[in-house]
Design a protein around this nucleic acid. Structure first.
Lengths: 338, 338
DNA sequence: CAGTATCATGTAAACGTTTTATGTAAAAAT
DNA sequence: ATTTTTACATAAAACGTTTACATGATACTG
């Protein structure tokens, strides 16, 4: 069985290959009857237009690459999932760019667009894997790229962010409202913007309520589950223990709760724990985790939409901030009376 | 800044484009000194060979597509992660094919190879998204594809599987060894092979130990967390309750434990729970989940290796089965004395 | 009816590579 | 000195599309 390309279809339907191509891309500019003929031939021959051929000609790969630190993280996989769904609707395929937290790999993935393997980038990272080289007129020449959730230092890039500061403020305020005064925090990766913003929100809430900020209560985590475990263990050794822990992601909250249980503490009776993200499992742990919900679907939809604008050379907003929501479940409760 | 292609590099280094190409693909067949010249020019010009051009010519996209039901499932995301790592080493990029459990989408992704967008398929599904059309000589013409973890009905396809039956047997035996006699099971999706095999293993263990098989104790789940919740609730209403639950995945085990806690049962004192998969979080829940570990990294590595063989037209084993391992943690314990 | 606008199609030139067949100069063999 | 071999390098032909331009037919205008 010889390979069937556009030529074969053209021959079969008795028109030129140009007409075949037009029938498939711009059906409206070809007459009703030839359109019929061609479509029949396409169906009959089972013609599948070769993507590489068309990509080469159009200079569009039809791919986007999403650069993300770790697909294994439930928050990330949620995002990826919603992006993929959205991308498919728009006719794009997604190349997976799991960096495993290695900046070099991020760079490699970013290069995909220079190699013409991808048309655009969705970047979940705080460091830009691209050189920003201003031309003679001083304006830079970035590929279509949108920075999502984590903000890079570079301002020129389009961003879709979440109101991390406000989210963290709400979480902290929730604990304060429950009567907690000594509220520990387990942070995310040190140099991430999400982390900085959440920390700011935490401090703001304390300040507003006139609670003394104690830097000993901010424990350095890294968004991974074991850092939640580790830091909580440390907290338990404090002489004046906190009565609540605000973890900067649900995963660390899971770790924290685990440790508390293991040490015989009841959550939330002895200690409240609140997370961030609202990953799928947050409501299925015991106790169900109170958290700050990030609008995962909306994030995926929005960043993909923004990227689409960029890809098509249409105007796109430079900065979009999405809202979080406080979800109260069972891991937070009134502060224990001393 | 004009776009720099192979032509520009050729001009810059004073050789033909053919020589440039050879220098990059087959350095060994070009003389030392021209190789130098060319490499210098490549570096100086910052030349990035266009993937579409080369793909079109070589008829290889350099992509593989992994078709998987739901990236959001921690077991799946673990697999994807290990595949991606392996693929990258081999010079392949991975296209994400999250089907969201929709067979139509699976088909679309599978078609990527017919469109020349991908060279091969890693298929995590029990239904083959491809027509198997035997030619005149009776042999079928499948694209490079390997079926992973879930087995399709079609035998002709290369498979990398896990010893689900033996795994389930071990899990059940573990419970039996702890003195449990009434052991419930929460299954996965009805028509999956994993499910059938695990069920077989469960039954085998009971039979071997001379325990009466009670089909009322096999509850239909679907590998998703809420089915663990739902079915456990049902189990609690039984007059002669089981003393242990074997969930066919850790997610459902999480759900089960959650329900048990909510209803005031202590795990494992009142009821033992064992899962399957050993997802990353299994050891961080409270109590930590006893489970059957699937060798995620090995699965990714193996199936990618098999696919590679197929892609390169080298021989590949038709069937590989990987071993599971019983991991005893805290969610299983001695059967309560009545 | 000449002239012009409109429309449907065909022709051929790209797109950026790789690679086969061909050529050429230098090295080796006679 | 002449031929044969070797080692490179080149020119040109693919790969499978899309699309600018050309062409011819048809319809419309004054």
């Amino acid at each position: 069985m010889a390979k069937i390309g556009i030529k074969q279809v053209a021959a079969l339907s008795g028109v030129s290959i140009a007409t075949v191509s037009r029938t498939l891309r711009n059906p409206e500019i070809v007459s009703e009857k030839t359109r019929q003929k061609v479509n029949d031939a396409v169906k009959k021959a089972g013609y599948k237009p070769n993507k590489m051929g068309s990509s080469l000609r159009t200079q569009e790969s039809g791919n986007i690459v999403v650069i993300i630190p770790d697909v294994t993280d439930p928050f990330n996989s949620g995002i990826i999932c919603s992006i993929e769904r959205e991308a498919q609707k728009m006719g794009y395929s997604v190349l997976l760019g799991d960096t495993q937290n290695d900046p070099k790999r991020a760079e490699q993935y970013a290069e995909m667009v220079e190699y013409g393997q991808a048309d655009g980038i969705l970047l979940f990272s705080y460091n830009l894997p691209l050189e920003v080289v201003p031309d003679e007129k001083g304006n830079v020449n970035l590929p279509p790229i949108v920075n999502v959730c984590e903000s890079t230092a570079y301002d020129g890039i389009h961003k879709v962010m979440v109101d991390d500061e406000e989210g963290a403020r709400k979480a902290t305020q929730h604990l304060i409202d429950l009567g907690h005064k000594r509220i520990a925090v387990i942070t995310g990766n040190e140099n991430t913007t999400t982390n900085a913003n959440r920390l700011a929100g935490y401090r703001k809430a304390l300040r507003t309520s006139g609670i003394q900020i104690d830097d000993k209560l901010v424990m350095q985590g890294n968004y991974q589950i074991d850092s939640g475990v580790e830091q909580t263990k440390k907290l338990l050794l404090f002489k004046d223990r906190p009565t609540a822990i605000f973890c900067f992601c649900d995963l660390m909250a899971m770790g924290a709760i685990k440790v508390l249980h293991d040490h015989g503490y009841s959550v939330p009776r002895d200690m409240s724990v609140i997370g961030f993200d609202d990953i799928k499992f947050a409501e299925y742990t015991y106790p169900a985790i109170s958290t700050i919900r990030q609008p995962v679907d909306e994030i995926g939809k929005t960043c993909m939409h923004q990227l689409y604008q960029l890809l098509k050379g249409k105007p796109a907003e430079k900065y979009i901030e999405l809202k979080t929501e406080l979800i109260v479940r069972d891991s937070t409760g009134p502060a224990p009376r001393k």
